[in-house]
Nucleic acid binder design. Sequence first.
DNA 1: TCCTTGCATCATGTATCATGATAGTGAATG
DNA 2: CATTCACTATCATGATACATGATGCAAGGA
Lengths: 282, 282
Amino acid sequence: MLDLMQLRSFVTLEQMGSFSLAAKKLGLGQSTVSQHIQRLETQLGRSLVQRDTHRLALTPDGEALLAHARTMLTINGEVQAHFAENSLRGHLRLGVSEDFVISLLPDVLEDFGRTHPSVDLELTVSLSGVLYEMLDRGEIDLILAKRQRGDPRGELVYRGPLVWLARDPARLGEKHKVLPLIAFPPPSIIRRLALEALEKHQIPWRIVCTCGSLSGLVAAARAGMGVLVQPRSMAPTGLQEIPAGRLPPLEDVEFVLLPRKGADRELVSALSKEILSNIRNF
Amino acid sequence: MLDLMQLRSFVTLEQMGSFSLAAKKLGLGQSTVSQHIQRLETQLGRSLVQRDTHRLALTPDGEALLAHARTMLTINGEVQAHFAENSLRGHLRLGVSEDFVISLLPDVLEDFGRTHPSVDLELTVSLSGVLYEMLDRGEIDLILAKRQRGDPRGELVYRGPLVWLARDPARLGEKHKVLPLIAFPPPSIIRRLALEALEKHQIPWRIVCTCGSLSGLVAAARAGMGVLVQPRSMAPTGLQEIPAGRLPPLEDVEFVLLPRKGADRELVSALSKEILSNIRNF
DNA sequence: TCCTTGCATCATGTATCATGATAGTGAATG
DNA sequence: CATTCACTATCATGATACATGATGCAAGGA
């Protein structure tokens, strides 16, 4: 007979990729998570995770268990929600700027969906500027977006430096005299920050790639087409940071969590907490 | 976080309709099952079963939990089967005489399906005589049927007296001089036993209803059309037993479990055990 | 080489669990 | 109406499992 606690440790371990991080996330001791996995392996008679001491991977058996464990935990969550006096119900429209979609959002959605199965989430991914407009028009209930300059609204959630990225920083000046830029279209905030910095230092530039999706921009940058600006903590693999001094310094970027006036406070609060607790990893 | 043990006790409690029977079936103490339910109720903050001390019913919350509990246990069974070295796999064709279908089969199928999720069961319901024929033709792997007279094959599983049943035994002789009989068509074993007993005592009879399904026969008997013969332990509600003496005594009926030669021994054995352990309730 | 990071192991106090016995409750019996 | 019976809740207890913090050990980085 399986133990849901152990399964939860197992699923979280896979999410976090580390015993100690999983333990932290679950509010348990590290040895506890270790024992949970061990008991699962003993009970099932197979090894579930491959421990390369500094690399962690699930075995095929582990993958098989993972799927089942997820659905069991999901059902468990539904039951809890059904019997919880104050179980949240309703509909919440979340807007997220593309930066977090790949890295943060999967875990947030999985955890939130499990702990609040009766809440329908509607997700919009777009540029921060667009999200603000939608929020103001009442089309979205909560956004996680970059702070607009001079807009004091919202709760600061993350702050970090912007960096210039390129596939091969050393060979930047070779072909082009003007800086080739890869950027979101307006009203991208990062785009505006980058252009302002360049103009302030009178560095000529031109846009070589504009794309509404981050993956498109990254593809262009990986292809060596030009320079991309991203928060350092979200720098995609395959790109290198251009050392300070070669290009003008950039302001820090700030991400804020901003609810729509009139949105359901409880839903917003619950989802905000989930996002905040997951964003600490950055 | 839910406990699968407790959920299993809950599901079994609903199956058995009694704490002590559930405990016996699970191999636990009665107080254990009681506490399992209590913990579930405490944890979820609602009462799940209505205890009228001699009547047991699930509350609406209990019903809601039951469905979820079933699927969680099913998934748990699938995982166990996946990791069990000797988990049974394959296809098994089971034939059951109609008598057991309503009373016994649901629990058997549910339990067996849960403990052996990788076994496909194919069910045939028919008269015992037909089942024997199908078995001999190799169309079925295991049958649970009445013993054919003079056929020593099979393992005795249940033996009990046959009784005459009618809606209103007192008014039997009123309308008819010949005994109105409700019976399966040939090659029904009960039918043959009944007719033999009547002819041995030279009691005139006629068939007033013949139907391939038990529910049809029961409906006719409930309508007062005539007399029905059934094992005492399977007497349908709404019919009364005709006291001994008014009609000739009947032989005991014997149910046997009979596998086809060449059928997968392990599958047959596993299913046989499941049937045997469930048939004790009779 | 030292230091840091991360997981496994160990001993231990605590909490939880299953159990058997007992008491309480309603129905059936005479 | 008293008794018996079948059934469940409660209780104390012994055993078990559990989470924890400290320690040991291996690998990668400075």
